[in-house]
Amino acid sequence: MEKIVFIEDETTLQKMLGAALKEAGYSVITASDGETGLAAVRAEKPDLVLLDLILPKMDGFTVLGEIKKDEATAHTPVIVLTNLESAEDVGRVVALGATTYLVKANYDLPDIVLKIKEILGK
């Protein structure tokens, strides 16, 4: 079973997408802040990371940078899932090595699951 670490501080969104992913057959580990999320990525070595940008303790940009800096996790695809959409934010995330950038409010839940399936080649 493929493993996904989902870092999102909004509990409602975390619960909803987490449930949809479990239903789609993935093993999901959730984290509500950047520090815990990064620790989970390092410990679990997931197949994919879903990352919000505005997070307590450590923001998503830093988490992404740390994931890509570490040889053990650098190859892990990271989907940035946020409601920020300014040119600066997108540019920073792309430069840091994110696989793709999705604006949460623009997608229905099944569409996000579909994108994840595409990236994991399922």
């Binding site: 909004e10 969104l13 409601n83 920020l84 409010a105 839940l109 569409d111």
Partner: peptide, 23 residues
């Protein structure tokens, strides 16, 4: 920018809920 971003979070939850019911 800040106000709009704050509004988008609950709206995302609403949108996702509606699509969950449908799917």
């Amino acid at each position: 920018d800040i106000i709009s971003h704050q509004l988008l979070t609950p709206l995302t939850a609403l949108k996702w809920s509606a699509s969950t019911i449908e799917s």
